[in-house]
Amino acid sequence: MQITKLGGYLLAFALVVLTGCAVDPKYSALKPLEGADRKVNINDIRQLRQMDRTPILDANLIAFVQRVRQRLEDAWGKPCDCVVVVDSFSGYEAYSLSTTTIVLSAGLIAQASSEDEVAAVIAHELGHVYQGDTTKGSQQQAALDMVKLAGWATGAGGYTLLFGETVDDMTKGLIYKRWSKEQEIAADRFSAQLLLKAGY
C-alpha cells in the first residue's frame, strides 16, 4: 500500500511540474520591490523566506545597490535582467538565487568600507549570472526538492538512509555549495575585469 501511495504522489507531482497548469500566474509573477528599478521574481522572495531571511525594504538602500549593479551592467554592455536584494542576515554573505535575483546581506553592506567593496561582491555574483552558473544551481535545487518530496512520500526520514544525512542538513549549506571551485575562480576573474571596466 505504501508503494502505491508513493507512486501516486510522485505522479501527481510530475503532472503539476510538467504541465504547469496548476500554477496560478499571480503567484509566479514578477513583483515590484520599492526602490528597485526592476521587479523581483516572487519565487526568489519565497526561497529567501524559506531560508528564514527577510528582504529589507529601505528604498535608499535598495536604490544604492541597484545603482551599483546598473553601473557594472552598463560597463559590461549586456543587461543581466536581474535585481539585487538586501536581506536581513547580519553576517557577511552574498549569493545568487537565480538568473534574476542576487542577494547581499545587511551585514555585508554594514561592514563594507566603501562602494568599491560592495561593487566587487555584486560583480562576482554577476559573474555567476552571466556565465550561466545560476542555471546549474537551479538544477541542484530541483534535485534537492525531489529528495524532499521522496522523503515526505515515504513518511519522514526514510530517505536519510539513502543519502547519509538529512535533507535539512543538506539545505543548510546549499548556498555555499552551489558552485564548484572552477566556477568561483571564473567569477573572481570576471569580477576583476568588470570592476576595471566600470572604473572601480
Rank of each mutant, 00 (worst) to 15 (best):
I122S: 02
K197E: 10
Q140L: 06
Y92F: 10
V65Q: 01
D133W: 00
V147W: 08
A187W: 00
I62K: 09
G7Q: 09
A120L: 05
A123H: 04
L61E: 06
Q139C: 11
G20I: 03
Y159S: 15
L174N: 08
A192D: 13
E93A: 07
L61Y: 04
T4M: 11
K197Y: 01
D37R: 08
V118P: 04
K78Y: 08
P55C: 04
G158C: 13
M146I: 12
A142Y: 09
W152M: 11
A156Q: 10
L15G: 11
N60L: 14
Q131R: 09
S90Q: 10
Q2T: 14
L195E: 06
F13T: 13
G107K: 00
C82E: 00
Y95C: 09
M51L: 08
G20W: 05
L72V: 06
L162E: 12
Y159Q: 14
A192H: 10
N43T: 15
D133R: 00
Q47W: 07
E34H: 10
G137S: 07
L18Y: 10
G91T: 04
W179G: 13
K5H: 11
A198V: 06
G77Y: 00
S28W: 03
F163Y: 12
R71P: 14
D145V: 11
R49T: 10
K181S: 15
G35D: 06
Q47L: 15
G7W: 05
M146A: 12
V23F: 14
L61D: 03
G91W: 02
T100C: 03
Q183R: 06
G7P: 09
I102D: 01
T154F: 05
A110T: 05
P55W: 01
V167H: 12
L18E: 12
D37T: 14
L174F: 12
A63L: 07
I3M: 11
Q183P: 09
D52T: 05
L126N: 01
A119N: 12
R53C: 09
I42S: 12
A59W: 14
L174C: 07
A22V: 08
I102T: 03
A112I: 02
I175Q: 14
P25W: 04
E73G: 03
L196F: 07
L18Q: 15
Q47V: 13
D37N: 12
T101P: 08
A123V: 02
M146Y: 10
A186L: 04
T100R: 03
V118Q: 02
L161G: 15
A153L: 06
K177T: 12
Q50V: 11
V85F: 00
G20Q: 02
D168F: 04
W76G: 15
R46G: 13
D87F: 00
Y9F: 15
E165F: 06
Y159D: 15
L149K: 07
H124F: 01
T135S: 09
D44S: 06
L18F: 13
V23G: 11
A29H: 08
L196R: 11
P55V: 02
W76A: 14
K177I: 10
G132F: 00
L97T: 06
K26P: 09
F64T: 15
E115C: 03
A187Q: 01
E165V: 05
A112E: 03
A120Q: 05
D52S: 10
N43I: 15
E182C: 08
F190L: 03
